[in-house]
Each structure stands twice: as C-alpha cells, then as structure tokens.
Design a protein around this nucleic acid. Structure first.
Length: 514
RNA sequence: GCGCCGCUAGCUCAACUGGUAGAGCAACUGACUCUUAAUCAGUAGGUUCGGGGUUCAAGUCCCUGGCGGCGUACCA
C-alpha cells in the first residue's frame, strides 16, 4: 500500500501509463487548456456538410476520442460530442512526423481533444474532418468501458457519466426529458399559470399520504420534514390571490423503491382558482395531447407492446363503475363484512384496521389499474381516501377527484380542492384518528394551513403529475432509473461501514494514501 | 420487508459432476497512407465481492456478511 514500486499490472498500470503520456503531451502544450473555440458542433457540421466541403472552410470541433484506427501513416478516429459522432482523419504527410506521432502514440480512448481542419468525404461516404491542427483538452486517465457490449444495468446507473459518454441513446433520452419539462413549462405559462417555489423543508408534512424523511435544523433546534408534496403551500398562494400557480419540484417519500418509485422524484403540481376537477381533466388532455403531438407520432406513443393514443378524448369512468366492471358487482350495495370476503376472493390482502374505502382502493389497484392502458380518467373516489378533496356535488360519500392512468400506472391525481375550513378540520381529525390507530401514512393536522383556509380560498382545481412517469411514457422507458440521471442506490464498496462512524473516519484518515 | 437469481482481468462474458482460471474489447511492442466492431503478428494483465468452514484439493460445495437484478408488498 505504501509500496513506491510502480504498478505494472491492471488498472493501476493503465492509469500510470496514461499519466506518463499526459506528461509527455504537456511538454509541448498545456495539458489542461482553459478554452477551445469551436466553429461547429457535430450536428451542425452534419447539417452543413456539403456546403462545408464545397467551401473548404476551416472548422474547429471538439469531442471525446472513442476509437483509434491507425493505418501506419494515417489514422481515423471518431470523436463524440453531445449530439453525435464525427470522424477525424490524421495524415502524417500533412501534420508532420512529430505532430502525427503525438496523436498516434500519446492519445488514448476517452481523451478530449479539439481539432481544426477541413471537411471531406471518404471513399465510403463518411463525412470526416481532415485534421490540420489538434490539441489535447483533457486526458482520460481511466479507460472507457468496452465498446460493443452494453454496460451492466448497475454500472449504467451508478456511473452515469460513463453511460452518457458511451451511449448516444442515453444522452438522447435525457435531452428528451429536458425538452418535455421545458414544454410543460411553456404550456402552463401559456395557460396563465405562474411558476412559484415553495419550501422543501417543512415543519409539518402534508398534501399526500406517505412516510416522510426527517431532518434537523440546528439553528432553529427543530426537526423538519422533506416535503412529500407542495400542495398545502400552493393553496396558500391561491388564498393570497394568485390566480393560477404551478411548481415542478422534487418530492421525497420514505418508502420502497421499484420500477416506478424512487425516494426522490419530480412532481408537477398546478392549482387554478375558480376551476374544478372537470377543468383539470380538460387541462390534462390539452397538455398530454400537445406532448403526444410533439414527442410522439401524431399523438400516439409506443410504450412496450402498447400504443397509447393521446389524440382522442380520454375515457372517463367512475371509480365504483370501474370496480363493478372488474368484479361484476355493485360494491356500493355490498355490506362491509361481505366486501372483505369478496376482496379476498379476488386475491386482495385485507388487513385488520383497513376501512371500507381502503379495501375498495386495494381492489382497484389490483383489479382495475393494470388494465388501464389507454389514457383514462378514473373519477369520483370514496371520501375517506381523499382528505383534501371536496365532496361530490351530487353523490354523498364521494369526492370530486380523478386519477389519470396510462399504461397501467397513475400519471396524475387531481381534485376539486376542499376550501371549507371547518370541513377540512374534520377531515384532518379523521386522519388523526387513523394515525392513532397505527396508520403511519395518515396526514397531519396543519393549523397554519387551516388558518389560511379560514381567510377564504376560492373554489380551486388542483392537480399533481408524476413527471418521471410522464418521461418514462414518452421515452418508452420501463424503469424510473432510466429517466433519472442519478437514481437512488446503495453506496458501493467498503465492507465495513459502521454508518459514517468516527471509528471508520479515523481509520480512513490514518491509513496511508496511495 | 420477503423470495429467486447473480457478482471471475479496466469492460462484456466463459470455465461440465470440486482437479493448473480463459476469450473478446481496452492496454503494451511491431507492421500497415481512405479506416469505420479496421486488419495482422506478438506481450502483459487475476486476493474469482468480503469473512469463515468442508476437502488431499474450492471460482465451483456449506455458513455468514456486502452489492445488484427480477418478482412481490406499500406508495406517485
């Protein structure tokens, strides 16, 4: 470990060799220059290709060296930038022995270089830069992964920089993510929504049913929660007189992880004064239809085996009707005791303390959700499940709520927002009873929020979209990890890890460094 | 959480019922003036995830811990 002998094998040897090459390159020119002025990026050269060949003008291009194909006195090398790949051509007769040899001998795969030269087309028709000058922009001391097999799923997520460097389609996917979010902002802005920012650190968590992350503020000497939703703050904005607001923000939920769940995820919440949930359904259709047009094929999107069509009006079905379709029974007419039995018959696990509506919700998740492939609004839910939604204007026991399902997962959740402060207080109290009975996801009573409501909130429609899931849908990605640059993962390495203990830290500090 | 499967060179993977750990890519040396998974000849590279056990002998079997994938449960 303190051995001074130079490594002659494995990764250490590769790094050592590359450092030596770096030092030799540094004798001639700065190894880490501060800038490189490009005239074009790869897609721009590709677009202007013929004109650039005809004019013979000089181009300056920079990228990562992805292969070296040496032919003795010439060398071809593909260079990647964000938008794609462009081949460059080194020729000894043109560059001179020294400059050519430096490229041939001292460049490694993964190095970042800048070139200047003129464009030509090779015999096989590939657009190529004939290099007249080149310089190192940064050396890759570590080798790139192997080039013609996929990296393991784990490495792709864990070393996203390498996934991005190696896989054009991965770069494309994240560029598309960015475009979709930009498009959403544009659409909401055009609809008169104001983008606002609300606290991620909250003294009380609310607006959804989930277990929170807890953290601590030293100066205030208090525990804070990472938000599970923005809802209660955005409604305060509506109370204050903003007409339409939205926020695209990370929420944090301390729950399991799987193909559609990451502990931190991006949620779009939007609230509009004087709207109800019908208006929000219309808004959802407008947003998704436009996204479908821009990012799909005339409003249609391929997701696995399914083709989802956003161009037609979405199906609307009442929650209880969907359940009736699935079970063949009108569950509203079934007594509580019989309902539990019926649920078990359909393979739903019914636990003690689950209310009637909770059982219905379980049945819905298992029996109905997976079959909702085409965009479907499921509306008018049982009241107990929705403590922030307004009572249904016609049917007692229900609330004005809808969830939008696509490809078997929930994409959005929306209500006519409850704005009667006394009713809201009763709903919170009911939640507290659930909490007392052991439901650790029940919502907390938020006096400050209630006081805001007591000042008067206009009738309001609200909605929350799972942005990551939306991105999955429009990129045909089947795991949330594929649309998050850095999904949550356990740290790798170190066997002994007594939770960042002083003991480990001390050990790390006292051990000799390489 | 639980269940199943996996972890071998920098990367992607082999190694049968336990018997000298291999290949391709990357690297190194050399040849080659339009290649594109460049090609050709040669070289080097391993604590087989960690720890313990069984055995004459363990990548392989057993126990235990770590990390991951998939399924399942709660949730967006």
């Amino acid at each position: 470990m303190s051995d001074q002998k130079q490594p002659t094998e494995g990764l250490d040897a590769i790094i050592q060799q590359r450092i030596e090459k770096l030092e030799r390159l540094a004798e001639q020119a700065p190894a880490y220059p501060h800038t490189f002025d490009r005239t074009h990026r790869s897609h721009e050269i590709r677009t202007a290709g013929e004109a650039l060949i005809a004019s013979g003008e000089k181009v300056r291009f920079a990228g990562r060296l992805m292969a070296k194909r040496g032919m003795g006195k010439t060398m071809f090398a593909p260079l990647d930038d964000e938008w794609g790949r462009l081949q460059v051509y080194f020729k000894k007769d043109d560059l001179g022995d020294e400059v050519f040899a430096r490229a041939q001998k001292l460049l490694d795969l993964g190095d970042l270089i800048g070139v200047e030269g003129f464009l030509f087309e090779t015999r096989t028709g590939e657009l190529t830069i004939h290099v007249e000058k080149w310089e190192l922009l940064a050396k890759a001391l570590r080798p790139l992964p192997e080039k013609y097999h996929d990296m393991s799923v784990e490495l792709k997520s864990r070393r996203r920089h390498l996934d991005l460097a190696m896989n054009q389609e991965s770069r494309e996917r994240f560029r598309r993510r960015s475009s979709i979010i930009t498009a959403l902002r544009g659409l909401l802005d055009a609809e008169g929504f104001l983008e606002v920012e609300t606290p991620a650190l909250q003294p009380l968590y609310g607006g959804a049913t989930a277990r929170p992350f807890v953290t601590r503020h030293n100066a205030l000497d208090m525990e804070l929660y990472l938000r599970i939703a923005d809802e209660l703050y955005l409604k305060r904005c509506i109370v204050g007189g903003f007409d339409r607001v939205y926020e695209i923000a990370k929420d944090f939920r301390n729950e399991g992880m799987d193909r559609t769940h990451n502990p931190e995820f991006t949620m779009l919440e939007a609230y509009a004064a004087y709207w109800d949930y019908n208006d929000m359904m219309d808004l959802s259709e407008r947003l998704l239809r436009t996204l479908g047009e821009r990012f799909g094929d005339e409003g249609r999107v391929t997701f696995g085996d399914a083709e989802v069509d956003f161009s037609q009006p979405f199906r609307r079905v009442r929650f209880m009707d969907a359940l009736a379709e699935a079970t063949g029974k009108d569950l509203a007419a079934v007594a509580d005791a019989d309902l539990a039995a019926l649920a078990r018959e359909h393979g739903v696990t019914v636990k003690k303390g689950m209310g009637r509506d909770k059982v219905l919700d379980e049945m819905f998740s298992l029996l109905v959700e997976p079959g909702l492939i085409q965009p479907t609004f499921v509306m008018d839910h049982p009241r107990e499940l929705s403590p922030l939604a307004k009572d249904h204007r016609e049917t007692p026991g229900l609330v004005e709520r809808f969830e939008l399902f696509v490809c078997g997962f929930e994409l959005a959740n929306s209500f006519s927002e409850l704005n009667d402060p006394r009713e809201q207080r009763r709903r919170f109290e009911a939640q507290m009873d659930l909490a007392a009975a052991g439901d650790d996801e029940a919502q907390q009573l938020d006096e400050d929020f209630l006081a805001a409501l007591e000042h008067g909130m206009p009738p309001t429609g609200g909605i929350g979209f799972g942005v990551d899931r939306m991105i999955m849908l429009f990129t045909d990605s089947h795991s949330i990890r594929d649309v998050l640059l850095f999904p949550a993962m356990r740290p790798e390495g170190r066997q002994e890890r007594p939770g960042f203990s002083a003991e480990w830290q001390q050990k790390a500090d006292t051990e000799p460094k390489e």
